[in-house]
Amino acid sequence: MRYIFILLVFINFSLGQDPNGQDLDPCSDPLIKLAETKGIKAIPLKDMVRFQRLMKACQRAGGTEQIKQLHRKDWDRDYKKARTMASWTSTHAMCVFVSFIYFFAGKALATVPS
């Protein structure tokens, strides 16, 4: 009985809501703003659940287009940064590719000397 009581108290506290935050616009939350300016990966892992809830709340509050833009900008940001290889990385990629071809061509074409 005692453990059930403690569990109920714990659940009560963990599901408690901040009455001061209820009237705020979820689309203007600092986490949403951070994701818009720096990208979704700038959100700390510990805030990810809250961020997901905020996005849903923002969509319900009419911010569907804002959330779509947030995701689109994130994809664009990642794509622009990684679509061309920088400095020595293309040489590395070429070495890997050549070794890959050499190995599998050898597997397919090489014969055991008699």
Binding site: W75, A82, R83, M85, T89, S90, A93, V96
Partner: peptide
Amino acid sequence: TYFRWRPKIELNFT
């Protein structure tokens, strides 16, 4: 090393 071939697709070399 890697690059994004398409926005959702990456090719990588290890």
